[in-house]
Design a protein around this nucleic acid. Structure first.
Length: 810
DNA sequence: GCAAGGTC
């Protein structure tokens, strides 16, 4: 019988392996090392003998970039909304692309085992793009040979069922993700650039390199800010409360217990009225017990552990921030101590072998006997929780003793294991007794509770809740009043949100995912919008937090999500939704830029205007007055008279330099030193050129070898693009310079006009003996720095729009 | 230098 090849792809290596284990006959397969491992086995597929090849992707995701609009200075942010976007390969993607192409060569079928959510569907289509041309008979394959496995848990039944019911990938769901990516990118970039530029040009002590905006990070920040506003606008109110103690009659003095009662009215806000109540109680001779009730109560064991719960507990109880928590959990997972730490699921899947996990902990030095007891007496099946079908809950995978893991790693492992044990332990049971006591006509109560069965609390908490006792009162019993006191208090504002509360709010409003919540919180901390304070880890906004309220509502995200849903369900076209949303946000953006004056007033209250900050540094080449140096990030120079801000190289110190002037533009030079090598560079803050200037200004050509027509430097045939050329008759030629390694610029050797590349470029060179067909200028080759992932450009500096858009002329 | 979403 003929044999077919079935090529299968999972989202990560661990999944390819565990699914192979389930599907391969007798769990037997061969593993071959490649970019990611490939598992192979023989079996049956659609009644044919088949060779299965199962591999995975890791970092396939494409990055979307906005072509030719990377220059912050040359692009109006509003243009970003209509600019074309590009899907570009991440560096390491080249390997995975090749890997997929090689491994799928000659395949008859492709089965996609990517996570069953929209992101997964989107990756399906990326995989398809990469394998389609390697498959046997590519033109025929599209419809019925590329198949999607839909699974919700990594269990035998679920995986087998998925294999027997293969479907087709859903293009609409994938398109919804494409739309989200494009929207997030364009909106994020436009607002971030505008905000950053606007405020950095104006204020001196903004302590952040960038003032970012995003549909997740901004609402996250706004939770913290609205609590801050509540606290600021809070005015305390005085209140009065009655504290009454009673004691049983007929008791000897020595064991006469006094019990503090709780006033049913709690407190009143009027002093006069409080006095009336106080007198009313003071007039009474005794208190009467009206009723005594005992109730059995239970506190339920926790659901199985998911990521959000782990993060919340980490922050509130262990003092470990979400970002650190994830890297610790990641490490524990990689070393095989715990299961996959990114999951939303809070209930153990049906086939989850709880006892097997328990057995791994039986010999544990701390909780081994507890685990054994559970095994003997039977576990308490967890109730409630949801199986989202992504990954099983977070559980321990193998035993680790305290000495084996260090510090926080051990504390996290210990919590994961205790939580697991707690989630299958009996509920906590306690008895609560409440006595209602009347004094004149005022009602008081007191209550106590006694733990009947500690249940899960004995393993999950280091301290189990202790009992509180009250005397065994009887109905109708009369008590002595031993003390009546009117106490005065003040209402307090709510406290700042704890990190744990913010995580809860994000989850509730659907902001971010289990994987990205720590990233968003980390972002707003790192960019100085909030600070984590105290052991309780409360997020307190800094001065940077004032953003337009309309744009920071958590509903911003969910409204967009609604639109995206229509795409996913096939009820709306990708383009229509995208156009609609882009138009909407572009209108919001226009409104925002017009209204920024109002926001500005808020800023003026907390920040000093740039002209009033900084220290005097060097003279401006235009007005000849002194400019001020602003040290807060990003360091820059500001000229008050011209109202201009000039950027400086970062990560180094700036000093005045001998009052020497740049021959090109009259700006005074500064000394830039990085400290690490102790070397200083003399630098013109305006054109970024550095000595020897005399060569440039004399039109001598190369500023390295000083040769007037050095081929390395001179763009031989390129006339100066200076706008005054026709008037001034400038016939200069351009000289190519590089200053401070990445700042490339072109300088006219006659009129000294400088055009600088503001993007970070790896290299700019002149293509030898190639000239533009239209104007005869030299052809320029531009290579971008690594992190830009842009293809090199080649073209004429005067005629090629893309190249000239990279240049800013000063 | 800018988003958010996956993965390592």
């Amino acid at each position: 019988m003929a044999s077919v090849t079935v090529f299968m792809v999972a989202e990560k290596p661990s999944l390819a392996e565990s699914i192979s284990k389930i599907l391969a006959p007798n769990g037997q397969y061969q593993t071959r090392k490649s970019y990611t491992p490939v598992h192979e086995y023989n079996g049956q597929f659609r009644n044919q003998n088949a060779r299965f090849k199962f591999t995975s992707v890791t970092e396939l995701s494409n990055r979307t970039c906005i072509q030719s609009h990377n220059n912050w200075d040359a692009t109006d942010p509003l243009e970003l909304f209509t600019a074309p976007t590009l899907k570009l390969e991440a560096n390491s993607k080249q390997h995975i692309t090749k890997h997929l192409q090689n491994e799928s060569r000659g395949a008859d079928y492709v089965v996609l085992w990517l996570d069953c959510d929209r992101e997964g569907e989107n990756i399906c289509f990326e995989v398809i793009d990469n394998v389609i041309n390697s498959m046997k008979e590519p033109q025929k394959t599209k419809e019925n040979r590329i198949l999607r496995a839909k699974f919700s848990a990594i269990t035998h039944t679920d995986i087998r069922r998925a294999m027997d019911n293969l479907v087709y990938p859903n293009k609409n769901e994938s398109l919804a993700v494409d739309a989200r990516q494009e929207l997030d990118l364009k909106i994020g970039c436009a607002f971030t650039r505008f905000q950053t530029r606007f405020f950095q040009g104006k204020y001196g002590n903004l302590d952040s390199a960038v003032i970012s905006y995003g549909p997740c990070q901004t609402p996250t920040l706004s939770f913290c800010v609205s609590r801050h506003d509540q606290i600021q606008s809070f005015s305390p109110e005085p209140f009065w409360s009655l504290a009454v103690t009673v004691a049983r009659k007929n008791n000897n003095d020595k064991d006469k217990e006094e019990t503090l009662l709780h006033w049913k009215r709690e407190r009143v806000f009027d002093r006069q009225i409080a006095r009336i109540f106080e007198n009313c109680v003071k007039e009474a001779n005794e208190a009467i017990v009206i009723s005594v009730k005992s109730e059995r109560k239970t506190k339920s064991r926790p659901h199985a552990l998911n990521t959000v719960e782990l993060l919340k507990h980490g922050s509130s109880a262990l003092g470990i921030g979400p970002h650190d928590m994830m890297s610790i959990a990641e490490r524990l997972y990689m070393q095989g101590y715990i299961s996959y730490p990114r999951t939303e699921t809070t209930s153990y899947p049906k086939n989850f072998d709880i006892n097997a996990v328990l057995r791994t902990q039986q010999a544990h030095g701390v909780w081994g006997s507890y685990a054994s007891e559970l095994l003997e007496n039977g576990v308490h099946k967890p109730s409630g929780g949801v199986d989202v079908g992504d990954h099983p809950p977070i559980t321990p995978m193998r035993k680790a003793e305290e000495g084996e893991l260090s510090g926080d790693t051990w504390r996290v492992y210990s919590y994961v294991t205790r939580h697991f044990l707690g989630s299958i332990s009996p509920d906590m049971r306690y008895i609560r007794t409440t006595a209602i006591i009347k004094i004149n006509n005022e009602i008081f109560e007191c209550s106590g509770s006694r733990v009947d069965r500690a249940g899960f609390t004995s393993i999950l908490y280091s301290r189990t809740s202790s009992d509180t006792f009250i005397p065994e009162y009887k109905e109708g019993e009369r008590l002595d009043i031993t003390n009546v006191k009117l106490t005065e208090g003040q209402t307090h504002p709510p406290d700042y949100l704890t990190e744990s509360e913010v995580i809860g709010l994000m989850e509730k409003h659907g902001i971010g995912t289990d994987a990205s919540i720590p990233v968003h919180i980390n972002n707003i901390c790192q960019r100085n919008y909030v600070k984590v304070e105290g052991n309780a880890r409360r997020l307190v906004p800094t001065n940077l937090e004032k953003i337009d309220p309309d744009l920071s509502l958590p509903t911003m995200r969910s409204d967009v999500e609604k639109q995206l849903n229509y795409i996913a369900l096939g009820q709306a076209k990708f383009k229509d939704v995208l156009d609609h949303s882009l138009k909407l946000f572009s209108a919001k953006f226009k409104y925002f830029t017009e209204k920024i004056g109002e926001m500005d007033q808020l800023f003026e209250a907390t920040f000093s205007v740039i002209a009033e900050t900084g220290k005097i540094m060097s003279r401006c080449g235009k007005c000849r007055r002194y400019m001020k140096y602003i040290a807060s990030r990003p360091q820059r120079l500001h000229c008050k008279t011209c109202d201009e801000t000039y950027s400086l190289p970062q990560n180094g110190s700036i000093k005045p330099y001998k009052e020497l002037k740049c021959p090109l533009d009259d700006f005074e030079l500064v000394l830039f030193s990085t400290g690490s090598d102790g070397m200083g560079y003399q630098l013109c803050p305006y054109c970024y050129n550095y000595p020897p200037f005399e060569n440039i200004s004399k039109g001598m050509g190369c500023n390295k070898c000083t040769h007037p027509t050095c081929p390395q430097s001179m763009i031989r045939n390129t006339v100066c693009p200076c706008p005054q050329a026709e008037v001034t008759g400038c016939k200069g030629r351009l000289v190519l310079n590089a200053t401070l390694s990445t700042q490339w610029n072109l300088c006219c050797n006659s009129c000294n006009l400088v055009s600088a590349f503001t993007d970070k470029l790896k290299a700019v060179s002149v293509t030898k003996d190639e000239y533009c067909d239209d104007c005869g200028s030299s052809i320029l080759k531009i290579e971008f720095s690594k992190n830009q992932t842009r293809e090199p450009l080649e073209g004429c500096i005067l005629c090629d729009d893309e190249i000239s858009s990279l240049l800013k002329t000063r």
